[in-house]
Simulated scan of single mutants.
Amino acid sequence: MQAIDYCRQKADQSGSSFLAGFRFLPEKQHQAMTVLYAFCRELDDVVDDCSDAQVAQTTLNWWRMDLAKVFEGEMPEHPVNQALRGPVADFALPHDELAAIIDGMQMDLEQARYPDFEALKLYCHRVAGVVGCLIARILGFGNHQTLVYADKMGLALQLTNIIRDVGEDARRGRIYLPVDELQRFSVPAQSILSLKATPEFAALMAFQIERAKQIYREAVAALPPEDKRSQRVGLVMGSIYYALLQEIERDGGQNVLSYKIAIPGPRKKRIALKTWLFGFKP
């Protein structure tokens, strides 16, 4: 199996909303986005699938070394890093941004709580904001302000993931919602870990949803007009995740403890086409 085929298989197995806008891209960009997604997915799997933290740490250290080979002119061992050499050369993807994703996964090994939103934002920047910037580089831009948009859109997408996955994360012993906000809304961590839906938890989730919606609005406002056309794929992803956020809100917010809400494939395609033609206005 060729390296790019491995990445395509990894991407196809996920069924992620992240992939919905890729079909609109020219082949070289489509391939680069697929490789980037596979890179992120592999790293995420290290943390999610390794029950032994020491093994996960050793694996992340190995990924750092193998990624470095991409930039040192050596042949990486992992097929994803082998495939990454093309996009790095074609789109000038920075080593520090790709390495920051590994730093974000490192945070998952070191902590299961975030004291406040600023601490959570650093995590989101590493696992999603820099991904947004890498996507912006693949798509192309003329105004450096577009990287500000991309980082903020990454934050909005990651906050949506956190909101959607509260129950799933709790089953793993993790709570990404900031500790000080749990305290402000009188939601004990143990009640989330026990998957107890309460009026206080519903109020907490309403707050989380509204803040995420505001960050979507700020992200779109930060995108320079001259780069809106080139960044349409990012806007497609944003609109799909924003629709997911609205669906969670309509479902009552607190039901994320019980099940994972998703947007059906046909609806994703309709949202993607509408956004491609008319833009994204959160």
Rank of each mutant, 00 (worst) to 15 (best):
T34M: 09
Q145H: 13
A11Q: 07
R250S: 05
D103P: 03
D48R: 02
R137M: 02
A212Q: 03
T160H: 03
A243K: 11
D44K: 01
V187K: 07
Q145W: 09
K10Y: 10
D48P: 04
L155K: 07
V233Q: 14
L204W: 04
N61F: 13
W276G: 12
D5L: 11
K274H: 15
V179C: 11
M65I: 10
D227Q: 01
G21C: 07
A119S: 14
D45S: 08
I163K: 01
D49S: 12
G238Y: 06
V187W: 03
D52G: 02
G167K: 06
I162K: 06
D52M: 05
M1A: 15
D12P: 07
F22Y: 13
S51A: 13
A197N: 15
R64I: 03
G142P: 10
I175W: 00
R126L: 13
R172Q: 10
R8K: 13
L223A: 00
I138Y: 02
A156W: 09
E74A: 12
G15Q: 07
S191G: 09
F91V: 00
R64T: 05
Q183Y: 14
R126K: 14
V131F: 05
T59N: 08
G15L: 09
D251N: 14
Q145P: 07
A11C: 06
I163T: 05
L235P: 04
A128W: 06
K269N: 15
L157W: 05
K121D: 13
I209W: 06
Q231S: 08
F280C: 03
P79R: 00
S239C: 14
R113D: 11
L147W: 01
V55Q: 08
T198S: 11
A222Q: 02
I192S: 06
F22R: 07
